[in-house]
């Protein structure tokens, strides 16, 4: 083939030549496959009729529970396997380091609606917990001169206990009858006599 011939047929490079050869080969095969595909419904129509026949449907109904059970079993086994695999993977991978290396935490946090988070929090309960943890009452007591002294607290508690003893003694001797609103509580907070 001369250079003029090559130029007229457009076969100037080996790659284009290979492409044309491929198209020339695959094109007819594709058209043949399309023709076969169009014939499939016609060909398989008798098979469809057989599959939808009553005996086969009955058999299929019996088989259905087995299929469902099989799928469930498969699902459970898959879950077990996946869980184990994921756990093993997570154990071997340092997720924290990965996140630190690949995630821009500042950008992530900047997108968080902190007001909404705070609105969902029970701040009163949180404050109570903090107070309970810090023993704030004790701190206030220590900073309050009136009740700061342990000795004063002891004297007052002993006075209260002595008051209760006297009240109970007087009741025992029948000098007075107890009234509901003046009932004496025991030091542990329980109802007294």
């Amino acid at each position: 083939m001369t250079a003029a011939d090559r130029q007229s047929t457009g076969l100037r490079s080996p790659s284009l030549l290979a492409l044309d050869v491929t198209v020339a080969t695959v094109g007819p095969a594709f058209r043949a496959a399309q023709a076969v595909g169009r014939q499939v419904p016609t060909t398989t129509r008798p098979l469809t009729w057989v599959v939808r026949s009553r005996p086969l449907v009955a058999i299929a109904r019996r088989g259905r529970p087995y299929r469902v059970a099989l799928l469930q079993d498969l699902d459970a086994r898959l879950a077990t396997v996946l869980t184990t695999v994921v756990e093993q993977v997570l154990r071997r991978v340092d997720l924290t380091a990965l996140v630190e290396r690949h995630v821009d935490l500042d950008r992530l946090v900047a997108g968080v609606d902190l007001d909404a988070v705070v609105a969902r929090m029970d701040l009163a309960a949180l404050a109570e917990d903090v107070i309970a943890t810090l023993d704030l009452p004790e701190i206030i007591r220590e900073s309050t001169s009136a009740v700061s002294s342990e000795a004063v607290r002891e004297v007052r508690m002993r006075g209260i206990a002595a008051d209760d003893v006297v009240s109970r003694a007087v009741q025992r001797f029948g000098v007075r009858r107890p009234r509901a609103h003046t009932s004496v509580a025991t030091p542990d907070g329980g109802p007294g006599t």
Partner: peptide, 24 residues
């Protein structure tokens, strides 16, 4: 929770005081 009154004395707050305390 934040009262300076000790926990053991809180049940008594507001109740009538007895003879010993008042005599003291």
């Amino acid at each position: 929770a934040a009262s300076p009154v000790p926990r053991e004395a809180r049940p008594y707050q507001g109740r009538s005081a007895g003879l010993v305390t008042r005599a003291g």
